[in-house]
Design a protein around this nucleic acid. Structure first.
Lengths: 265, 265
DNA sequence: CGGATTATTGAGCGTGCTCAACCTGGGTGG
DNA sequence: CCACCCAGGTTGAGCACGCTCAATAATCCG
């Protein structure tokens, strides 16, 4: 089943998720549990893609979101080569996705925070093309494909949401291509930080003060830079008064200045 | 309507396509015409995404593909900022898609040949995020969104095809990110040429002898390299006996050698 | 506390960019 | 028909951005 070389393996206790229509809870590991509260009462409703649906539609939506899963830091949500089984809505935590090519080179292709949808790469495909790894403890809602496609046929609003999520994914990777293909190192990092800030802001968090859940290696891999370059640029930006970093904690002091870097030269 | 800076504008005679449900042909420019022959008799059936559908499904599919359009070399199929109106199946010709960021930098994000589906970026979105420009005279089948989503709800096989096309798009841009983020210039070009070869082969064309429809500028933009670097590398590959170029005509002489470059170092 | 992982900083090098000159083919107009 | 032009392409010289290699520091975790 797994044809690609990777040392990441799904822990055995997640096997149950591959057959998500088995709903009984007895004997299941605590990381996979029945979704009791319901979408209407969900505390993450404000950021959930289903948040804008009409009450009747939410009820139907909830029918397919009957599983929640916790993924601990360092564990995978899914692994490249895994059969497509579900879409995931992240509502707590932080993940990265990585791709490994035939030569064994790994690259980070995206970072995901609360409100983002994962697993879109294999709607309509046979297996996941990338691996999703938790960078912080995560809670996700699990929506089995076998239930999503039928429901999307019944509920136009859901169909449209689904397509919108896929569009977002495509637009996002277009931006990533711009960064990698036509920006200098400093512009890539500035663009990355501004993007993180914007996404935090849209989720009601501070757009200035952030906790970076990923390592410099991850940032470098995502931006097509070495870890040394990332580190040096963060130091440079700090010396220029644009931001303030230590370790994983970062404060953006001059958003305008960072935006200026993108236009510079 | 168009918020982004670009000098590419849709010619006026294409306006009719923005209201595709108007079916009468009288007075329409010859570039947009009713689809008479039908999918069952279409000469491009072998490469069309609808090719594998059951006869009854093809009939329904044909209901929404009642327009064909010709796009001349140098003209746009759609422009970033255009309202989403349709999906397009290309069955003759060659296109590139480009994105322009807020600073005005343009980058090529993809090349499309017969059998490819365009316009996926805005299924579920409000407007196109990229511009598609014909690099050779093109024939496309036009499938209005307003008809696709309802039909996809009625025909599971079509829904799945649609999702598969979107997955392909995502997987494709993951490969592009790998190229841009973790390959040297020579590896990017080799990977690009091998990709073109593989796609030609899958369409029944020669995988060794190809006519490059794009300029060196386009290749450079797509690969994140300058035109000089592309040119120099093509000359180098030729000196090494890996291929034979002049102008837009290229023959790959040593596929294995090109693949070796990807692994090298 | 010790080892491993992550991060910072420096010195030197090399890939790929910049700038510039020149060549080629295709289209246009006198 | 040739002269001309211009976009597209090739090639060279020199430089700089970002990588490699290396040493050191800080932090996490068993």
């Amino acid at each position: 089943m797994m044809t690609w070389v990777t040392e990441i393996r799904r822990p055995d206790r997640y096997d149950g998720e591959m057959r998500p229509r088995i709903a009984e809870d007895k004997g299941r590991a605590p990381s996979v549990r029945k979704f009791e509260a319901g979408c209407a009462a969900c505390e993450a409703r404000r950021i959930c893609p289903a948040g804008g649906l009409a009450p009747a539609e939410v009820a139907k939506f909830q029918d397919i979101v009957y599983l929640r899963r916790t993924v601990k830091r360092g564990e995978p949500l899914f692994v490249a080569g895994d059969a497509c089984s579900a879409l995931y809505v992240l509502w707590r935590g932080f993940l990265k996705t990585t791709v490994v090519d035939s030569e064994g080179h790994e690259q980070v292709t995206g970072f995901y925070m609360a409100g983002d949808v994962l697993g879109i790469d294999c709607v309509g495909g046979a297996s996941h093309s990338d691996t999703a790894l938790a960078l912080a403890d995560c809670d996700v809602c699990v929506m089995p494909y076998s239930l999503i496609e039928p429901l999307a046929r019944a509920v136009p609003a859901l169909q449209h949401r689904l397509h919108a999520a896929m569009s977002d994914e495509i637009v996002h990777s277009q931006r990533a291509m711009m960064r990698l293909g036509s920006m200098r190192a400093d512009q890539r990092l500035a663009s990355f930080l501004l993007g993180l800030s914007r996404r935090s802001l849209r989720r009601g968090l501070s757009g200035h003060e952030m906790q970076l859940p990923m390592t410099r290696i991850d940032i470098g891999s995502y931006l097509g830079l070495t870890i040394e370059t990332v580190s040096r640029l963060l130091s440079l930006f700090q010396r220029q008064g644009l931001l303030d970093v230590n370790h994983r904690h970062i404060r953006l002091l001059d958003i305008g200045g960072l935006e200026g870097i993108l236009q510079k030269k």
